[in-house]
Design a protein around this nucleic acid. Sequence first.
DNA 1: CAGTGTGAATCCATTCACAGCA
DNA 2: TGCTGTGAATGGATTCACACTG
Lengths: 277, 277
Amino acid sequence: MTVDRGTRPSRRPVPSTRTPEDALAPVDAEDTGDVTDATDPTDATDPAARPVPEATVARLAVYLRVLTTLLGEGRGTVSSEELAAAAGVNSAKLRKDLSHIGSSGVRGVGYDVARLTAEVEATLGLTQPHAVALVGVGNLGHALAGYGGFAQRGFPVAALFDVDPALVGTTIGGVEVEHADAIGAVCAARGVTIGVVATPAPAAQRVCDHLVAAGVRSILNFAPTVLAVPAGVEVRKVDLAVEMQVLSFHVARRHGTVPAAGPVAAPRPTPREAVSR
Amino acid sequence: MTVDRGTRPSRRPVPSTRTPEDALAPVDAEDTGDVTDATDPTDATDPAARPVPEATVARLAVYLRVLTTLLGEGRGTVSSEELAAAAGVNSAKLRKDLSHIGSSGVRGVGYDVARLTAEVEATLGLTQPHAVALVGVGNLGHALAGYGGFAQRGFPVAALFDVDPALVGTTIGGVEVEHADAIGAVCAARGVTIGVVATPAPAAQRVCDHLVAAGVRSILNFAPTVLAVPAGVEVRKVDLAVEMQVLSFHVARRHGTVPAAGPVAAPRPTPREAVSR
DNA sequence: CAGTGTGAATCCATTCACAGCA
DNA sequence: TGCTGTGAATGGATTCACACTG
């Protein structure tokens, strides 16, 4: 079951000269959350390259948000220091991140906001819209569907699904809710590339299978379950329970195991300060 | 990063017997993410260092979910291999994770489900409830507040806040929505330890400041902004846009510039496990 | 034996420090 | 002179492999 690696990966592939403009190459997935990816080493279609690390990709999205704001304010350039502070990271990390996408800032000056914005968007594949299908229009799903941010960000909601007869047929944000049995046909027909699963845990795997069968290779999972997917399909997970429990861990660690109401560290308001490190 | 190593972590919690009352629980989920924390190394209140790595903590929550299910099925023991498969990680990682919390499995047999469940809960600080305050009862916030999973998981929603006059005074899930101006007083009075920010981006930082001033040291941020907090306060971020963009990146990477022809058609049964039910 | 616990090796990410260019 | 781009150093997390034990 577990992959048996045996090949001795040669040391450094040597970045060599990065020629192509948007040389996007296969990267491996795995992040601090959960990415059930499965990049296959036997992939012959990759001209070999070592681009954008996973951790960097996630931050690029954050940089993009800041850049968008700056662009709206009419800023012409930004220094790595300023952009980094706004994004909550240190400047060295930001510069290294940007170096991965082959950006070019101007020494002594900084980065051209407009240009950098375009480069980041291109790297993230945002130059073209990605049709999204959302399955599960319950409590959370409804909120997600109603939230207009999707379309504005280049992720038009192309389809909504549920199994509840009371919901099928209704319209949310201009999109009609269809029965989950139609996932396969509808997603294939509308060219859905990203699927969002917001169903109860028991139904998640089944829904996921249908999405994958319809050709969807990227899934965002809100259901509290680990989804099993074939190689080549990427799953990112958003789990509220996990987040809360991680915070719980830190609360507990903070004041030992002793329950509240103690002479524990004073809940001083504390000063305000810039983003750490 | 931070963390002052030094003291020998003679970790040995063992919180006696604990009631497996809140075992099993259908829940919903949410989030993922990035951690914009600011752990303070100068913490003098806790002599015992922190043995559990961050990455491990996040996975413990996942293991716990699986364990809860197993417990509900009446399983007595599990092997690292089985538990790992169900949690979507490899067995070596799982064993190392568990070794950090000082768990003890039985060689040749596996782990005692009930005991391991208790140990993980103790490590995550779930032996006592953590009062939660949710700020921003709009689209998403309302869905989160209405979702009953919080209380069942040991995170009772102690307060709801918003600034919209139309919402203040209404009741959601038995909790009344109060005006955001009362954050300080209410949180302090009700002993809130975890704050959830679900406001629009512009209001997030202000709300965060109020929560911190009220003594809240752990915050879950759903707003698309980087929150600046003083040292000692931990912030975990859940950003939908970031998740979508990361997936976008992978979609783009997959079929470079050329739309995929359509390789894998059927959902290949892969690591299918048995977490269902 | 089957399966845990863990040192050692490896891989990935962050940080440092500075050369080099506008 | 100021700030980018990046080799090198450091640190954390994952994987391997195997000694050891119920």
